[in-house]
Design a protein around this nucleic acid. Sequence first.
DNA 1: CTTACCATGTAAGGCGTTACATGATTCA
DNA 2: TGAATCATGTAACGCCTTACATGGTAAG
Lengths: 182, 182
Amino acid sequence: MANEKKIDCVILGLLSHEELTGYEIKKRMDTALSYFWNASYGSIYPALSDLVDRGLAVRRDGAASRRNKLIYTITEDGRNYLKNWLAQPASKDELRYETLLKLFFGAEQGEEQALSHIEAFEAKIKKELPYLLSAEQILKEHQNDADAHKYYLLTVSFGIKTYHTYLEWCAEAKQLLSARRG
Amino acid sequence: MANEKKIDCVILGLLSHEELTGYEIKKRMDTALSYFWNASYGSIYPALSDLVDRGLAVRRDGAASRRNKLIYTITEDGRNYLKNWLAQPASKDELRYETLLKLFFGAEQGEEQALSHIEAFEAKIKKELPYLLSAEQILKEHQNDADAHKYYLLTVSFGIKTYHTYLEWCAEAKQLLSARRG
DNA sequence: CTTACCATGTAAGGCGTTACATGATTCA
DNA sequence: TGAATCATGTAACGCCTTACATGGTAAG
């Protein structure tokens, strides 16, 4: 009761908006959720079967074509399960940045390498930021279409704000390291 | 060769500064590294034995007392292994915030609950921030004592900057949700 | 004398990824 | 006709946490 598996909750959360296939669930994760949550097919498909076994979702055949397509819908029990999980306080917010780890041990490697870790990090952020910005744009335009958009926007804003801060930090860090050289 | 286990690298990184016991390694993680990296005894102790088996660290008995105390020192092979890992680009920076996940599905729960998730997150950040600030203070005072301090300071600054941004976001998010009420 | 901290370790199990395996459909 | 994308699933394995199990030492 107390220890809901996160993967179940994420899937039910997505199904609470719309019925989806496993493939579509993966796509949602790779776009809307990827900033703060990820999952692979190897965890999604088994979780879906499990949700059906437990009566939290139902599976039906999307047999419009010969193509093998299974559509999942949340049940009332599923909705209750989700609501119960949402009512509990968030248990774990964790950040695991290998970049910071390598930087922490920078004395062992020297400034050149430390700089290149920062630059790689900066490049990655600069590459991802436009996706968040365009999501924000779209969400702001369709702000009143659905209540869910408001919450989606909140998480996107979180990402944009922190990414901007990351870039500021990169600039400062590079300066601090470069200043000591030569 | 390519896939170094992170736990090994973190331990070797800590041992590259000073010789330590498993218990002390855990303490370092819980303080200096906890913002971006964590590990439990259940992974630290087996990893230490493994490092010794592979000749990357040596264990000796800190037999000053009857107390059971094992001190680990990095070897030259260990240093090379660490350097090799540090030379490779960081492979994964990941953020997994359950708070954002619950917020994303906020439409299912309503504004009251969404607000309380934000408030809990805000409280947690406000509680942790002073530790980072005091670490920054100490590091700035001892800036020239050791080269390693500079890199430690860099990671602490990262934490402080992002935490400030989180708090800004909390204020905005609360406003956005509260404004719609009543 | 008891609480808190120092100190080490194991066993079971959870959670997840990667790689593999298969095949349909669509579009250029 | 070949590439990209849609679509589902399994098996092996990696990595880690939690809970357990044990005991020493210091300070009030």
